[in-house]
Nucleic acid binder design. Structure first.
Lengths: 163, 163
DNA sequence: CAGATTTGATAACAAATGTTATCGCCAGCA
DNA sequence: TGCTGGCGATAACATTTGTTATCAAATCTG
């Protein structure tokens, strides 16, 4: 699958959920004409507009490949069936709940970082925690992911290189 | 329970989960000596350091009453038992998953708001969506919740009052 | 009641961040 | 090969936001 391929458009209802075997994907949305990147997914990630998929509502984000990708995909029935099978077994059910909670904690920490960290700190966090993303993703996507402009990100990099 | 009562201290392991019958609570943490408010809970909310409660790890937040409060509380065994009972029934299990997902979506939207909205817009969102909080919570808590200083929040209010 | 604490407004100045524009580099492609 | 579009750096200037300090009103407390 080529780079810059859209696999889910904002406004559509997500019918499929993906697994990234190879490549990189970004989730983004249109904010008054401005392209805002919200999340990145590299190899080994599960990708979906979960809210749209789960609740059958229009997706607020688009999904688009950044690099050429190899993806696995599953449709709604597959996923529901798997969830039902897993949660039938008490031990796996507990594990499943843990996984879902973990995703919640991730978002929570992400929020926290916006409240307490400066853009420069957020960039450094990203460098430390997900260096792959910084290396492989074009800088203007990273800037909007951090909530700043590409100009400002460029300044931050310059400052870090000097200091 | 009097105002300014701490019901969970940062660093402790959460043993209990609360239900707000009456009053207001804030979740906050210490960031290099700076008191940062992360969340508010009014009547009808469930309150806990969920991560600490679920994983038996030190809580990264403190919980403190803002107003005099009436709280119900449940301990770990109660909650585990209830979860197990609920998830035993497939229909309720699905409902339970929905509830957990819903919390995740909330955090997701909260993150989004930090990326795309200006502090002024976030304040206006809060005014529209949770006017109770703006009315009842001291302004400097709201400022740190919005990720800005109390001085800046005061300026925003002034600007909105004029414009 | 009197004093202390909390809360909120405001001013003056400093620092961070956004806006707009320009330039150069480089990969893809006709 | 030369052209084109995407990407990144940088400068000049505008705007937003933070810092520090001061004052006033409200609230709590003994």
């Amino acid at each position: 699958m080529a780079a810059r391929t859209v696999i889910l458009k904002e406004g559509e209802i997500a019918k499929r959920i993906f697994w990234v075997e190879q490549g990189a994907i970004r989730a983004w949305f249109n904010n008054d004409g401005e392209d805002i990147t919200f999340q990145f997914f590299l190899e080994g990630s599960m990708v979906a507009s979960i809210e749209s998929f789960r609740k059958n509502i229009a997706s607020i984000i688009s999904l688009e490949t950044i690099e050429p990708c190899v993806l696995w995909c599953a449709d709604k029935e597959d996923v529901e069936r798997i969830i039902n099978e897993i949660t039938e077994v008490p031990a796996l059910r507990s594990l499943f709940i843990d996984v879902v909670f973990e995703r919640t904690f991730d978002y929570m920490k992400h929020c926290l970082s916006y409240i307490k960290d400066s853009p420069q700190q957020r960039y450094q966090n990203l460098l430390n925690e997900k260096p792959q993303i910084v290396q492989r993703v074009p800088q203007h996507y990273i800037a909007s992911y951090l909530g700043i402009t590409k100009v400002h990100l460029s300044r931050i990099k310059n400052k870090l290189a000097k200091g």
